[in-house]
C-alpha cells in the first residue's frame, strides 16, 4: 500500500514497488482516502509519506499498527519529522532509489 501526495513521487515509488514484484494498492494521495485504505486494504506492508497536502499521515500509521500491518515512512523531513510513538519506525529520506526502498521494506516486512 502506497500513500504519497505528490503525483510525480507517487508514480516513481509505484514503479519501484512494481519492479520489486509487489502488487501496489493505491496510491492514496490525501489523508482521508489513506485512512479508508488503511482500514480495509489487504496488504503486506505500507509506504507512507508524512506530509499529505498539509496534514500528517500519523493517523494512517496508527490504523495500520492496530491492524498489525508493517509500514515505513518516506519523507522530505527525514527522521526529524516523526511524531511521538513512531520514533523507531524506519524513515526513507527523499529522494531515494529502488535499492534503498527495497532494503527498508525488507526491514519492516517479510516479502517474497
Amino acid at each position: 500500500m502506497l500513500v504519497e501526495d505528490e503525483a510525480l513521487v507517487a508514480m516513481l515509488v509505484e514503479d519501484f514497488l512494481t519492479e520489486m514484484g509487489c502488487d501496489v494498492v493505491g496510491p492514496a494521495m490525501r489523508l482521508e482516502p489513506g485512512l479508508q485504505m488503511a482500514a480495509t486494504a489487504d496488504v503486506d506492508f505500507a509506504v507512507l509519506d508524512i506530509n499529505l497536502a498539509g496534514k500528517h499521515s500519523f493517523p494512517i500509521a496508527q490504523v495500520l499498527r492496530e491492524r498489525g500491518i508493517p509500514f515505513l515512512f518516506a519523507s522530505g523531513y527525514g527522521v526529524a519529522g516523526l511524531a511521538e510513538g513512531f520514533e523507531t519506525t524506519p524513515v526513507l529520506q527523499k529522494p531515494f532509489d529502488r535499492g534503498e526502498l527495497e532494503k527498508a521494506v525488507r526491514r519492516v516486512a517479510s516479502i517474497g
Binding site: 510525480l8 513521487v9 508514480m11 523531513y77 527523499k94 529522494p95
Partner: peptide, 17 residues
C-alpha cells in the same frame, strides 16, 4: 529542506520514468 528534497524526488521521478 523538505521542499528541496521533494523537488529532487520529483526530478528523479521525471528522469527515471
Amino acid at each position: 529542506n523538505h521542499r528541496v528534497k521533494n523537488t529532487l524526488a520529483s526530478v528523479q521521478s521525471i528522469v527515471v520514468q
